[in-house]
Amino acid sequence: MEFLQLLVSGLANGCVYGLIALGFVLIYKATEAVNFAQGDFMMLGAFIALGLTNAEYMDLPFALAAVLSIGIMAVLGYALDYLVLRHLFGQSQTAIVILTIALGFVIRFVAGAIWGHEPQSLESPLALGDVHLGGLVLGMADVAIIVVTVLLTFFLFQFFQRTKLGLAMQAASQNQMAAYYMGIPVKRIQGLIWGLAGATAAIAGILYASKGAIDPNAGLMGIKAFAAAVIGGFGSLPGALIGGLIVGVIEPFAARYLAAGYSQIAPYALLLFVLVFRPHGLFSQVRTKKV
């Protein structure tokens, strides 16, 4: 029973990691860039939702606030691409990595300046009530997180595989110049994907904030989500979810069964282990090019 309880709470945590990792993978799939600020995006989305919902700020109904904050984050993501990232079009990955780390610093500073550094919790209807399944106790928020994550992964996967826009995004990442020749508006596509990643981050943020308090440093969790994305293999959406689940499940078990001090290093040790044996993640998409 204890085993099952640990497993389920781990799964719920893992889904949050998976949601952030989805944002990483989305951007990676479409622009071949990695957004290190994705965790901070999530934090920002959570704070925007909090600012709209909570009684001491705007006091809007939760559903409206959730939709609004997702919209705002989507616009922010697009604007960010339009204003900043287009200057780096075609530059190397490393430049974008460093840029997004810097961006994370700035977002953290701005969020701290607006909402303060005290942990706050979102007044969300999801935060109330537990679900009893046999002997298992699950928070409403946990159930919501698991359901939303699985649905979102499914739809995004279908979007990339089936729709014209999704294929265009994949093409734009694989070879920018060839994509141009095929008539794909590469720059606009990149803007769209940043918007989509912003919206995903907002969803992750709302769900995460329903589970507990958030503060401007919550975005640092992005590093763990990053580990999840790498374990899954960057560029694979189901891989991101599975990587997130692995990291999420390992954490409570390590905390329960390993000595103190060893438990928090478990996800990173696993990450290094995976990278040693599968340098491109479990669901690798790297093929060797023949020259």
Binding site: V34, Y268, L271
Partner: peptide, 13 residues
């Protein structure tokens, strides 16, 4: 990017 994340993990470890 994989190198970057491996080195981050090293730094945290």
């Amino acid at each position: 990017i994989y190198l970057a994340i491996a080195t981050i993990a090293l730094s945290i470890l």
